[in-house]
Design a protein around this nucleic acid. Structure first.
Lengths: 242, 242
DNA sequence: CGGATGCTTCGATGACGATCGAACTATAGA
DNA sequence: TCTATAGTTCGATCGTCATCGAAGCATCCG
């Protein structure tokens, strides 16, 4: 009826508790089967199937057949960012389902946001990267600097491969627990994968929480030192390593 | 049932077409009466009243009594940012209600986003401000530099007054038509107000579109020159402050 | 080929919520 | 005080949609 994009469609898709639960579960980045999603949503398999087809028709999720299973994932990064954005808004307004549950601290410390690191650690990492002039940018448009490219390659990240993908390499994602930005995009994903490959961090089963090992903690702290008081104001020299 | 914030509540609030229409209308920043909102939503006054009380209970809008009228506005900047964010997502996915209507080009060029300038002009303005080192920052955390403070004051903006408010001065807001960030926050609001006070721009009635006058165009272009090709890459010498 | 598992489709039920008419309250103006 | 305008509340109706049982496909395994 009016001008502009239709937000009611998306709102109604998210507005159903069962669907919201499914989407939240999928924000963990894991590909989940219909049965698993039915379980987390608390509905039978039939209703879950109905919801899933609606979400897919709305372009929010996509499925991949594998044997007699169907694995569902969020359609793309954008959906993840949008969901995380909504969660931030909801959390800030106190719309929580069971206020500060048991594993809430772990989630706030480090968790998976679709495919990259979020929570305190995620925010700290981006702060550090910015302070060290590895990443610059405004708004959600972030960019790797020349020195940053070197550092990332030294870490063992295959930058050309990331660039070949059709997705942005760096992107800012608003963290719902910290209300600050953390690093998303293919680089964010690659970094989280790196941490897990090196055995520094492990994903908890059945949760978005990420648990760092002892060596993981120290390596992470070494790699991403906390910037001085005002991370934005700072504009000095820094040679951390090569 | 699960961990985390409750996005279903917000989703269901936005999911109803009538409410979505009302929220979209309120994104213009104007305070609207219940009757006006009923009109734009296409429902009777009774149903509008019911919707409005739900939106208020959900904290998305607030009302102000004035005589026998009740003026409704979005509750705060956060709501505006969230709505605009959803619109961006919806627009990118092609969820439009009537594809590219007549005044669509005007909306894309310059429009009001709750209380600040959006569209091509809004994005251009932030790009220019960043290129001229008036504003720096990462993610949605933007900050005025020292030189920026001088320039803004010279423009006639009362920075101390803006700082006294409980809102962030600078903030990035994702533009749904450009898919880039533009300037929000109390400074963004102050700048738009300035343009209109100077007679450079006028709001269209019954639309979010902003129309620039001839002198407004030239003054705007003079004040916010287009940055060089790659505004983000630039990293030369610059002594912003100490 | 059976049998088991994973998932979809169909159909019926039930509940919630959007809608509006009618009645009620409140403010403004004459 | 009387009337007109603005808005809320109540109650009834109606549609839509979530839900689940049952049946139907598809895939894997023995």
């Amino acid at each position: 009826m009016k001008e502009g994009p239709d937000i009611a469609l998306i709102g109604s898709l998210i507005g159903d508790p069962a669907r919201a639960n499914m989407l939240t579960a999928l924000t963990s980045g894991k590909a989940l089967t219909a049965t698993e999603l039915a379980g987390t949503a608390g509905v039978t398999l039939q209703t879950a199937s109905s919801h899933l087809s609606k979400l897919e028709a709305g372009g929010l999720i996509s499925q991949r057949k594998q044997g007699r299973h169907r694995y569902f994932t969020l359609a793309d990064d954008d959906v993840g960012l949008m969901i995380e954005g909504l969660m931030g808004f909801a959390a800030y307004r106190g719309f929580t389902r069971h206020r500060t549950g048991p594993k809430d601290p772990a989630l706030r410390k480090a968790r998976v946001c679709y495919n990259h690191l979020a929570g305190d650690y995620g925010v700290r990492m981006l702060d550090s990267l910015v302070a060290e002039e590895v990443i610059t940018g405004i708004g959600d448009r972030l960019q790797l600097t020349k020195t940053g490219e070197g550092k990332m390659t030294a870490l063992g990240i295959d930058l050309p491969a990331l660039t070949r993908l059709r997705r942005p390499v760096c992107r800012a994602c608003l963290d719902w627990s910290e209300r600050r930005s953390h690093l998303s995009g293919s680089l964010g994903q690659a970094l989280l994968t790196l941490f897990m490959d090196k055995g520094w961090a492990k994903r908890e089963t059945d949760s978005r929480a990420v648990r760092f090992t002892g060596t993981g903690e120290t390596e992470f702290a070494k790699l991403f030192p906390l910037p001085a008081p005002s991370p934005v104001e700072r504009r000095q020299e820094h040679t951390v390593e090569a």
